[in-house]
Amino acid sequence: MRELNVELVTAQVARLCQEANFDLPPDVEAALQEVGKREESPTGRRILGELCENARLARSDRIPLCQDTGLVLVFVEIGQEVRVTGGSLSEAVNRGVAKGYTEGYLRKSVVADPLRRVNTGDNTPAVIYYDIVPGDAFRLTVMPKGFGSENCTALGMLKPADGLEGVKRFIIEAVDRAGPNPCPPVVVGVGIGGTADKALLLAKRALLRPLGSRHADPFIAGLEGELEEQVNALGYGPGGLGGRMTALAVHIETFPTHIAGLPVAVSLNCHALRHKTWVWEGEKSE
């Protein structure tokens, strides 16, 4: 059994919130450079150049990549042999978000109530997901989600008879409907199966897979490649002003589902796919 004090969590969440907003992950930056070589549209190439320059400036000046510094998603994996001490873990995470966003001059984009819309002033609360996993490590990922792309999320409760073709059509139509709005080149996260809510969560988690990776199941991996080609035939390109590179990647995650259903969810992320992870494997204690 290891003991983790929530004060450490607060400090790390604050750090991750800032790093995520200033420091584009290397796989994303490499992908932007790579598609810049393949983009045919001069406007598209110019925009990709601006995005690479933007990433450099954000990192060197510690200025957010995008002014929409997002609503913070936090994915926590708690080893079942870890004991969390010192107070409420969720409150500690939210204190970290408030600290990170205030001290980092990040935008406070959260309203306390979706209808009355008064800003909470510190970008809390985060949306937190907890998973209990085997072992004695603690892993926490911060993902600030911008709403230009979040507003393009799609959920389809397809019929089993719609099959693979129906799923492909639904995904392509979701990206087509979004067009320029989610800030292409996008990463397309897809969740297939489970219940409606499970499919949406799978789609979100799919965004976190490293760019360049493929699903372990060759059938799903093949589908990812096929959909990437189809998405990149839509013509939106960088910024949606026309071009070949509409998506950096399509990532699919699946889950068993009900005999009567075929849920499919599409979560889009802009080219600024921001996330940072902290893994704690602290001192052993009795």
Binding site: I47, I63, C66, C183, C270, H271
Partner: peptide
């Protein structure tokens, strides 16, 4: 006019 979405650090300059 369209400015590049997600280039906030560059445009802020």
């Amino acid at each position: 006019l369209a400015a590049t979405g997600g280039a906030g650090a560059l445009l802020g300059r």
